[in-house]
Design a protein around this nucleic acid. Sequence first.
RNA 1: GCCCCCGUAGCUCAGUGGAUAGAGCAGCGGCCUUCUAAUCCGCUUGUCGUAGGUUCGAUUCCUACCGGGGGCACCA
Length: 556
Amino acid sequence: MTPAELSQSLFDLVNQVSERRRDADAPVLGLTVADVVLDRPRNRDHGDWASSIALKIAKPLGASPRDIAAELAAGLEALPDVASVEVAGPGFINIRLEAAAAGALAQTIVEKADAYGTGTLYAGIKINLEFVSANPTGPIHMGGVRWAAVGDSLARVLQAEGASVTREYYFNDHGSQIDRFARSVLASYLGEPTPDDGYGGAYIGDIAATVVAQYDGDIAALPRDEQQEVFRSIGVDLMFTEIKEKLHGFGVDFDVYFHEDSLHESGAVTRAIDRLRELGHIFEADGAIWLRTTTFGDDRDRVIIRSNGEPAYISGDLGYYLDKRERGFDQNLIMLGADHHGYIGRMMAMCQAFGDEPGVNLQILIGQMVNLLKDGEPVRMSKRAGTIVTLDDLVDAVGVDAGRYSLVRSSSDSQLDIDLDLLGKHTNENPVFYVQYAHARTSAVARNAAASGVDRSAFTPELLVHDSESALLGVLQEYPRIVAQAAELREPHRIARYIEEVAGYYHRWYDNCRVIPLGEEPVTDLHRTRLWLNDATGQVIRNGLGLLGVAAPERM
RNA sequence: GCCCCCGUAGCUCAGUGGAUAGAGCAGCGGCCUUCUAAUCCGCUUGUCGUAGGUUCGAUUCCUACCGGGGGCACCA
């Protein structure tokens, strides 16, 4: 019996009880199945599943919660897979399943394999997920790396729920930051000091040297403005290529790298502005062209074409958003750092100005910043000052798996502290090893089982009665719900926390229950059935790590 | 001044209205002739920032305040 079936049964019982109890003239409760949720109690004494529904409906029915609970309990007890039901505390209903019914899950998981945990929440939905989008003015730093890890994992989670996801990187190659970058590289080449508003990192010199080596001609012979253009175009390409390669090495690949420049060149920006003008949301003032975002809740109107004729940054967003919509994306997700949260108002206003629904067609996910600490003291990261910690630094220190895992296991709402010293030393503190070790252990057990003549030729789930077994089964059952929740809330860290929990239950089970008989003891159906549970656990950990983009090693 | 995020064990952090608030790390003490000891077991620590409110029930929702971080351009 699946949790869904059990909660449907409970829902039916709730309806029966409320029909029987309510006065003829009283309003119906209007509950749906979703209101009748089953919890997996933390305390195993409270059964395999628990419901607080009696507490919720007691008042409208004018009855005591315990009386309602008792009636529901009687109905549940009659179900075939339910072993026992009790009413506890103020009116909780604690349900215990037959061991066979609970244990059947092990076989289900093994048979579903990679598909276990996937759902259909977003079946048929096209989602565009834009993340990282760091400017190509320097190596990708820790802030961007966090979104690379979280965004890629979120994409995987959404795909697991049936969505068609396009990972997209918006490449800002149009604005004045690029000019600063070009001037900085040029200055380095000429041996001049870094411009006041330029970038001063050591990588600037490297880029200058590489550009000189790659340029087919004599840069020194060019006039200064042409020199700058050479350093701009080749330098940006170099950065762009490097960023792509580094992200690839980190396991993050984008489907689309979208160039801001192309929006201006293709006329997409002009088209978007024309469209908004037709809709009556454009006005002119002080020599500039504005979008009246205040109509849609923004705290001020926004300039989209400056009085000098240059498009403001947001104009690219107008064209870009329209382009995404024309490409058929129902949901457009954009991940931004907390330093960009002020964009939400204007972006949502823009979405609404186009006639779309903010929060549905456009969703902006804000993630908090990464703080770097050294000797317990904060280190400020700045591309300008050249004090940056890059993707490479992270991977060199701890590797891809531990790096991704440490970035994705915290809520994006929390600022992340990363201690540069700890990063290099105490790698065992990373819970990823705890989880990976559990997975390696399931593989080792499976290998040894094969060598010892334990196979999966029998499956008798009613034998899985040890406390550590029902606890493990209980947590394995949660997986599909966790994936759905992570997708809905856009919070992939839930997957990490969950598999840590699975690893814990598995290790404790391993300690208590043998899959392979000791010494000369015969192989029994209990051993064979436990092998199913072992393999099921490995499968769930593997699936979970897969959603995080972290390897599931068979040996450690 | 306004907006967003955070405040939970010594540290880093989970916990989108439920029962006795959890994990990892750190500390102390136990288990290897037994499927991998990167595991497991035991001990120890909490005004869930403060004060109100809603609720049968609040770490969770609402309000105010305190503390930390970030943001409020014809920059991108």
